[in-house]
Each structure stands twice: as structure tokens, then as C-alpha cells.
Nucleic acid binder design. Structure first.
Length: 280
DNA sequence: CAAAGCTCCTGACCGC
DNA sequence: TGCGGTCAGGAGCTTT
């Protein structure tokens, strides 16, 4: 489940692989992802030199020197594998659900694999890209300089939905998904069922800090699974072993006493895990 | 306008 | 062992 930390990990891997590099040949095996891959994507990118790679929320955006670009979203099950030499047997092996292969001028190979096909790959122009959807509707970057308690309080002031659901809203904060919403609320000590606009100043400040800290820790753990090439088995790095509440129904939370158990409830059709004792 | 519900998809898992 | 049922969730669309 790629959320901001996983996408950031993939982005860093791509950056290492693609910097000072050009597309040599792009092969698309399957175009019917969540949005069809545009018919001329290969044509637009072919032989183009990479300029830069950006992460915005859960999206990765790649621009070439001529201002062509594409957006990559990993959806639920998207993975990127990178090989240093496309000629090795390992790199040549086709995996089930490999939809796109980018061969680079320096012999590297980048593979996009997505079993559930919830992912997206489509063209974007560099000019005004942030003013186009979905970026135009997107909230602030939680690890950016402008994310602070005042921003968060303002963004939540019009949200009467449960705070857990509000955190999943990409127009409030970009990049948080189900796992890190649960984790952040746990560390902030806030009950996920609370109405978002009812949080007080102190709680908003704690939540702001908790969001930053949990995302930073997860990126560090995700980064630890990187090797010389994006070991992007795409997984969550090692951070899943550090989840405090997510996926831990009936267990004790890290701060719990004997009679205390992590609960699982459903909010907006998604599982929420929380500790009734620690989160009020 | 906000919020809730539905849908897409396949693999993992469970019980029999 | 195989088979059917259930669950997982990001985001865009539809409905309320």
C-alpha cells in the first residue's frame, strides 16, 4: 500500500537510476490501468534525457529536458524494479503483471509491475503542471516547510467528518493513506472517531508533530531496504514491523496495560485501528 | 458544498 | 488439493 513514505522511497530509487540518463526504448505490454496509458507515451519520451523527478503526495512526476513529462501513481499494488544491466538473465525475466519496461541509454532497465492495475501512468506537460489535476486539488506536503498547526487547524475547520477520514482526504494533506493515518492518530493520542473540526489547538499541534514524525521514521525504514539499485521489491521497507496499531487488532499497544486492547473499526469503508485507552 | 457509497482489480487467506 | 467467499485499499465518480 504505497503511501507517502513508500512513494518517496521509490522516487529516490528512480532518481538514482535515471539522473543523467535518457530513455532508449520503452515497451508497454498493457495499457488498461486505472486510466489507459496514452497511446503516444513511448513516442513522446523516446530518446529524451531526464531532467528531474518530483514526488507530490503519492504521485511521482518525471520531466525530460524538453519539458515532456509523465505522472506515475502506484495505486495499491504498483511496484518498480530497477536493474543495472538489462542484459542479465534477471533483468530479462518477465514477471506476471509487468506492464511497462523503460530501457535506458546506459543499459539500465526500469520495470513497472502492477497486479491490481489501480496504478496510473500518463503524460503531463511541465508548464503549469501543479495547476493541473490532480495536483491543483491537492493539500500541502506534510514534510514541507509550510505544514504547521495553523495550516492543519484551518484545513480541518470545515471538516465535520471523523478526523481519520479527514486525514485520508488528499485535499487536506497530500500523501497520507490508511496506515499512516492510523499511526499518526495513535501517536497524537486522538480518537479517530472525533470530528475533525472539533480538535483543539493543543491536539492539532500534537497531530501535526505526529504526522511528520511517523512519516520521517517510515521513510528512514523504507530507505534501509534500498540497496545499490532500488531494491524496490516495492514493499514497505522494514517499517511494517514498527506499526504501533495498524493490523494489530486485539494486541496491546506499545503503551498499553494488561486490560487494554487495540480495536478495529470501519470508517468510510476502511479499517481503522486504535487504542481506546491512549486515544481520547 | 461536504460526505458517504460504490467501483475498479488480483492475490492472500480462510474454512471446508 | 482445490474451490468459493471475503478482504485489502487509492482515487474518481455518483448519490445523498
Amino acid at each position: 500500500m504505497p503511501e507517502l513514505p513508500e512513494v518517496e522511497t521509490v522516487k529516490r530509487g528512480l532518481e538514482t537510476a535515471l539522473q543523467n540518463n535518457s530513455f532508449d526504448h520503452i515497451k508497454i505490454y498493457r495499457r488498461d490501468l486505472r486510466i489507459p496509458i496514452p497511446a503516444n507515451l513511448e513516442q513522446r519520451l523516446n530518446k529524451q534525457a531526464i531532467k528531474n523527478i518530483i514526488r507530490r503526495g503519492k504521485y511521482i512526476v518525471v520531466f525530460t529536458q524538453t519539458g515532456e513529462g509523465f505522472v506515475l501513481h502506484l495505486g495499491m499494488s504498483g511496484r518498480i524494479r530497477i536493474y543495472q544491466d538489462k542484459l542479465t538473465a534477471e533483468a530479462q525475466a518477465r514477471h506476471k503483471h509487468d506492464h511497462v519496461i523503460f530501457d535506458m541509454q546506459n543499459q539500465q532497465r526500469v520495470v513497472f509491475n502492477d497486479p491490481r492495475r489501480f496504478g496510473m501512468l500518463y503524460s503531463v506537460d511541465e508548464q503549469n503542471w501543479e495547476q493541473q489535476k490532480p495536483f491543483s486539488d491537492m493539500g500541502i506536503e506534510p514534510l514541507g516547510n509550510h505544514f504547521n498547526p495553523a495550516y492543519l487547524a484551518n484545513a480541518l475547520s470545515s471538516k465535520k467528518s471523523p478526523i481519520k477520514s479527514a486525514l485520508l482526504d488528499q485535499s487536506v494533506i497530500a500523501g497520507i493513506g490508511n496506515i499512516y493515518a492510523c499511526e499518526a492518530l495513535y501517536y497524537a493520542g486522538i480518537d479517530p472517531r472525533r470530528s475533525a473540526h472539533r480538535l483543539n489547538e493543543n491536539e492539532t499541534a500534537k497531530l501535526c508533530t505526529a504526522i511528520r514524525e511517523v512519516l520521517i521514521k517510515a521513510i528512514e525504514a523504507g530507505g534501509s531496504s534500498l540497496r545499490d539499485h532500488v531494491q524496490t521489491d516495492g514493499s514497505l521497507g522494514y517499517f511494517q514491523t514498527q506499526w504501533a496499531v495498524y493490523g494489530r487488532q486485539h494486541e496491546k499497544c506499545p503503551a498499553c496495560h494488561d486490560n487494554c486492547r487495540i480495536q478495529r473499526i470501519t470508517q468510510s469503508g476502511r479499517s481503522t485501528f486504535y487504542c481506546p485507552t491512549q486515544q481520547q
